[in-house]
Amino acid sequence: HITEDSPKLLQHVKFHSSNFENILTWESGPDGTPDTVYSVEYKTYGEREWLAKMGCQRITRKSCNLTMETGNLTELYYARITAIDPGGRSATKMTDRFSSLQHTTIKPPDVTCVPRVRSIQMIIHPIPIPIHAGDGHQLTLEEIFHDLFYRLELRVNHTYQMHLGGKQREYEFFGLTPDTEYLGTIMILVPTWSKESSPYVCGVKTLSDRTWT
C-alpha cells in the first residue's frame, strides 16, 4: 500500500537540455534512502494523459533520458517522478513547464583548424541533433535557428585578435606570420534566443616558410 505522505523523499526535479538532448534529473530528498525507487511519467502540455516512460520505472538511478518523448519543438512538456521507499512511503514531484527550444543550451562547435604558411583555415562540421523533420531527416542547429551564426576569433598576440563570422562553415585567416603560434576560438551564437555556446579552442602554429631555403 503506497501512502503519499513523504515529500522529503524527492527534490530538484528538472530538465537539462543540451543540443536538444533532454535529460530529466532529480535528487534524493532528506528522507530518501538508497533503496528508494523512482518512476517517471511525462505529458504534453494541453493533453490529459500522463504517459509512463518505459525504461524509467522503479529505477534507483536519478536521471532519465526523455529526448525522444519531448522532441516536438512546437510542444511544451511536463514530467513527474514518483519516489517510493522500502517502507511504502511515496512522494510525487513535477517539473516546470519545459520547452526544449527555450531551455536547450548549445554545445561548442566541432572544428578542424588547418595551419598553412601564412594562413589558418577553420572548418566547422555540422552537428546532428536528435530532432527529425517531417520527412524524417535529422535536423541541424542551422535549420532550427534561422539566425544562427558562427563567430571566429584568432588571437594574434596579446593586444588584438582577428575576427571572422557568418553562416558558412569554412573560414580562413590570412596575412599571418609563418612558424608562429596562434589561438583560435570558435563559438555558435543564436541572437534572437540569446543563446551562445561556450567556445571551441584550437592552438595552432603556422608552417615554416620554405620558399627561400
Binding site: 505529458k43 502540455y45 511544451l76 540569446s194
Partner: peptide, 24 residues
C-alpha cells in the same frame, strides 16, 4: 531578446500558478 528577457524574469512565478496542465 529584450522581450524574452522580461518574460523569463516572470515565467517561473506565473507558470507555477497554472495548475491546469491539460489545457493549452
Amino acid at each position: 531578446p529584450e522581450l524574452w528577457e522580461a518574460f523569463q524574469a516572470m515565467k517561473h512565478t506565473v507558470q507555477a500558478q497554472d495548475n491546469v496542465t491539460s489545457v493549452r
